[in-house]
């Protein structure tokens, strides 16, 4: 390497540095969320904003035990969680659709008393852990076979199943070891669960398993 090339190479350093100094604020410009309260009058920002992306909301009564008496009966609900989002008002409540399913047998479900007592009611978030579509609970497995790509469950799983319209992931809500086990399709893990309590014969959802879609 002669002196000229060396000096040329050396002069590239400040050029690249300048480019980086220019690009860093540009990338920051692309980042959506503003600091909570930035440019908003005092007192308009809800206090929850400071707590970040937590699946947190008010306890929500979703169904009575009377409604879910039959095995494989279910109830859909929408849980409102609160986290910051880029909107003109700076904050927006996001919603998580869920489903409560009554099973004919008892199993250990992490959303009920941390899995210490067996229960026959499971409550799942309906956000598909694959790519975020909303999946369905289908009480009749034949409808799963007909509508969701032709998956035929093995003999012992011919009961209500959960299935996603987008990429045909199929989950078994009643698996005794892993409630929500992935039976078929590209989903990497079971759907997130809701934590719930039973208060005077009413199922009350108190929170959700933390974590995003992936």
């Amino acid at each position: 390497m002669n002196r000229r090339t060396f000096l040329k190479a050396l002069s590239a350093v400040p050029v690249l540095g300048g480019l980086g100094a220019f690009l860093a604020p540009v990338l920051r410009y692309l980042k959506p969320n503003l600091e909570p309260g930035l440019g908003v009058p005092q007192g308009k920002v809800p206090p929850d904003l400071a707590e970040g992306d937590l699946p947190k909301g008010e306890p929500l009564p979703i169904a009575t035990l009377e409604e879910l008496r039959e095995p494989w009966s279910s109830k859909f609900f929408v849980f409102t969680q609160k986290y910051p989002q880029y909107t003109p008002e700076l904050a927006k409540a996001a919603t998580v659709p869920g489903v409560a399913i009554k099973l004919p047998w008892k199993l250990s479900f992490p959303g009920y008393k941390a899995g210490k007592e067996p229960t026959d009611i499971v409550v799942f978030s309906r956000i598909c852990p694959h790519l975020g579509c909303i999946f369905n609970y289908v009480p009749n497995w034949r409808e799963v076979t007909a509508g969701y790509g032709g998956y035929v469950p093995p003999e012992e799983r011919r009961h209500g199943l959960m299935a996603c319209p987008c990429h045909l992931s199929i989950y078994d809500p009643a698996d005794r070891e892993v409630p929500g086990r992935v039976l078929s399709g590209p989903a990497p893990r079971p759907p997130r669960y809701f934590t719930y309590e039973i208060r005077d014969g009413v199922i009350v959802v108190t929170g959700a398993e933390p974590g995003g879609i992936a």
Binding site: P97, C133, F135, N136, Y148, P186, P188
Partner: peptide, 24 residues
């Protein structure tokens, strides 16, 4: 609500089918 038959525009359909087959 995600409707059951859900498709994309025609030029993404093949990719959509591929996504069903592979780990994410």
């Amino acid at each position: 609500r995600t409707p059951l038959p859900i498709l994309s525009d025609w030029y993404f359909l093949a990719l959509y089918q591929y996504v069903k087959y592979t780990p994410p």
